[in-house]
């Protein structure tokens, strides 16, 4: 794809994000679009958000579970950028009217104390460089009509990131078994989903190592203090006005979020 085409698609996604009006799948319009093209479109989409005053605060890893990979037709994860406008804290109410077609998923967030520079990063390096982990929700959203996404669509669309909610509980991955820690998601007081760390690439640390290596190849920095959402451990949970979700990670603690308003789609 030419730079003009890349920019046009990135701008279209940014406009869709601003107007909360989704666009048709990229793959339907550009059948030969590659994943590399898609990351360049993502770069443009995110650059527009940064130009509007947002800053990068971390990364998210997506497509980490086998069912999602099969759905997208890939056998590797993807990543997107977390920006300052996406940040929510434990107990916040997320305004759904800012989003198009949101769904929630429960994850483990990593906060680094050292830079991680790939290639060559292993899961052991990730544990070594991690300050702490926290329970969190990612509220994914798609700027693509009806979530009709393949891997190129979601990558271009900043890995379908909407907003995220970081739990206050902090855990030390040298004390907590992040691979076998259970994840329980309750919606309005009833268990809605359960999962476990191993659902993410065998262990969330594997997903973070993958990200460090991928970013290393692309020359994108991965800095101490950044928040990394390591990938969903639960099924996608639809949310509407008035819903409350709590996720609890065994041996770590909980993260709580409420929802108000009505999403665009």
């Amino acid at each position: 794809m030419t730079l003009d085409q890349i920019n046009a698609h990135g701008d279209a996604l940014y406009d869709a994000f601003l107007a909360r009006r989704p666009v048709p799948p990229l793959l339907a319009r550009v059948p030969d679009i590659t994943i590399v093209d898609a990351y360049r479109i993502q770069e443009r989409f995110v650059a527009r958000r940064l130009a509007a005053g947002e800053t990068i605060v971390g990364k998210k890893i997506g497509a980490t579970s086998r069912p999602v990979q099969e759905l997208l037709g890939v056998f590797q994860p993807d990543f997107g950028m977390l920006t300052s406008a996406m940040v929510h804290v434990d107990g916040d109410t997320v305004d759904l009217s800012r989003l198009i077609q949101p769904k929630a998923e429960a994850e483990l967030a990593f906060v680094l104390k050292d830079d991680l520079k790939g290639p060559g990063v292993t899961a052991m390096d990730v544990i070594h460089a991690t300050d702490h982990v926290r329970p969190c929700f990612e509220i994914v959203d798609s700027r693509i009509t009806d979530w009709a996404i393949k891997i190129q669509d979601t990558v271009a669309d900043n890995a379908s990131c909407g907003v995220y909610v970081l739990g206050e509980a902090k855990g030390d991955p040298r004390r907590l078994d992040i691979t076998l820690a259970g994840m329980v998601v309750e919606k309005n007081g009833e268990v809605a989903a359960t999962g476990v760390g191993a659902a993410v690439q065998g262990s969330p640390a594997n997903a973070v190592a993958w990200l460090a290596n991928t970013l290393g190849e692309l020359g994108i920095p991965f800095k101490a203090g950044e928040v990394i959402l390591s990938g969903s451990q639960s099924a996608l949970i639809p949310v509407v006005d008035g819903d409350e979700l709590v996720c609890t990670v065994g041996g770590l603690g909980s993260c709580r979020v409420r929802f108000s308003g009505k999403a665009a789609a």
Binding site: A181, G182, M183, A199
Partner: peptide, 24 residues
């Protein structure tokens, strides 16, 4: 223990076959 949040992974022949937490 917190018997509500125990994670479990069931592997068959070295591959993950099912996963969950005890609150299920």
């Amino acid at each position: 223990l917190d018997l509500r949040t125990l994670g479990v992974v069931l592997e068959k022949n070295g591959e993950i076959a099912a996963m969950g937490a005890s609150a299920a």
